[in-house]
Design a protein around this nucleic acid. Structure first.
Lengths: 229, 229
DNA sequence: TAGTGGTCTAGACCACTGA
DNA sequence: CAGTGGTCTAGACCACTAC
């Protein structure tokens, strides 16, 4: 069997974990490792490039490769559609449209999304339920200038998120997480006391430098977002 | 100038964004693209593999490569040390040790970190200030069985986080984010009203299947964690 | 300026899987 | 079974940068 880059990557990782090369230490160069593993330099290169991208090692031309003292701590979150998030937990998903209106863009939103004065925006609020219990309150603004079809879309059965992923080819986004206190509306919809601490996700989506949508997703009390790294 | 894999990746990405291959559509195979770009197949392969890892396209042997309908929405967060986080904002960093004690592990922690009954753990609480204002409250438990030196470490000047990154070679971690209500202690240290909504990060770190540390990092009111993707 | 990683190439074989 | 992506190889040249 040939030595694969995954074999090399796994072995290097094991040696790093075991402390063969302590943090900050210089590792052998690619040519030497290739000889040691009995494979081509390109194979070692691929393994080490992945370790570098994972933040485990640090590579510099001429200076060589070193084990990072403090590995770059990066966490990767997948941003699922609410329906999938709920169904993945084995719960029954239900969606409800709370309100929908086409209005002139408020100043704060116009400034934030770089829209034109007086243009129309679609404002939606919806609820997502898991096994009948409130799960997430969605407060969304959509710019119809980018997706004109949205004026004729029907959001009574399907959430705007699912409609948007089909309508917008690909987009750039900015996402933020924070804690907020429940106001009267949130408390009512999520079934909690006013003032309760809630986890909120805020996402702004752009398509070719034009704002597509801004959304606040506020979760029921006690929600945790977790991952490993 | 030779065609690099980055050229190919950029061009493919542009075509996807412009809708040359709409979501779900089959893209040309590697050999054809290589001919089109006038480069080796390996070059196209690298470009497309990166796009696949970025969640833009989906590749299957024999079936070919397709543009994802709903791109895998992933966000990557770097997890900086508090000091760096604060200094990066151009603010003055200050650290203070609030409490430190070596005690027998409480049951909830023993269960959670899979420790032995009656073993000692180090419990620390600290404050991190930005320009003199409360920024983050740190509540940390350390397992001395993994890092015996911790018993002699001095945390009066430097935070345990900075000590740990030097002491533990490499580790696996689980991280979670949530919203909590300020209790009396938090309210006092962070200078907010009891019951205020606060953003909290919780991290558990493992080294070779042994728990190293569990930490709660609770931020001052209004903190936002953001990123782009 | 010399050593190291970064990348391309042309060819090859293989693994998977849809038709 | 045949088409597609996945990977390895051996060699080459280049870009960067510590010394």
């Amino acid at each position: 069997m040939k030595v694969t880059f995954k074999d090399v990557k796994t072995d290097l990782m094991a040696k790093i974990t075991q402390g063969v090369w302590p943090p900050g230490e210089l590792m052998p160069n690619e040519a030497d490792l290739a000889a040691e593993y009995g494979c081509a330099r390109a194979t070692v290169n691929r393994a080490m490039q992945e370790l570098a991208e994972d933040g485990i090692i640090e590579r510099k031309r001429k200076a060589g490769t070193r084990v990072r003292k403090a590995p770059v701590r990066q966490a990767r979150f997948s941003i699922p559609i609410v329906r999938q998030e709920i169904e993945a937990q084995g719960a029954q998903y239900r969606y409800a449209l709370v309100s929908q209106e086409l209005i002139k863009v408020p100043d704060w939103l116009r400034a934030r999304l770089n829209l034109k004065t007086g243009q129309a925006v679609l404002h939606l609020t919806c609820m997502h339920y898991a096994d009948g219990s409130p799960y997430q309150f969605e407060d969304r603004w959509i710019n119809p200038a980018v997706t004109p079809d949205v004026r004729n879309a029907d959001f009574s059965e399907t959430g705007p998120n699912e409609w948007l992923v089909d309508a917008v080819p690909f987009s750039d986004a900015e996402i933020g997480f924070m804690a907020i206190e429940a106001d009267a509306t949130l408390a009512e919809h999520l079934g909690c006391a006013p003032g309760a601490a809630l986890f909120r996700t805020e996402r702004t989506t752009w398509w070719q430098h034009q704002a597509v949508t801004l959304v606040h997703l506020t979760y029921r009390p006690g929600h945790r977002m977790t991952t490993r790294y």
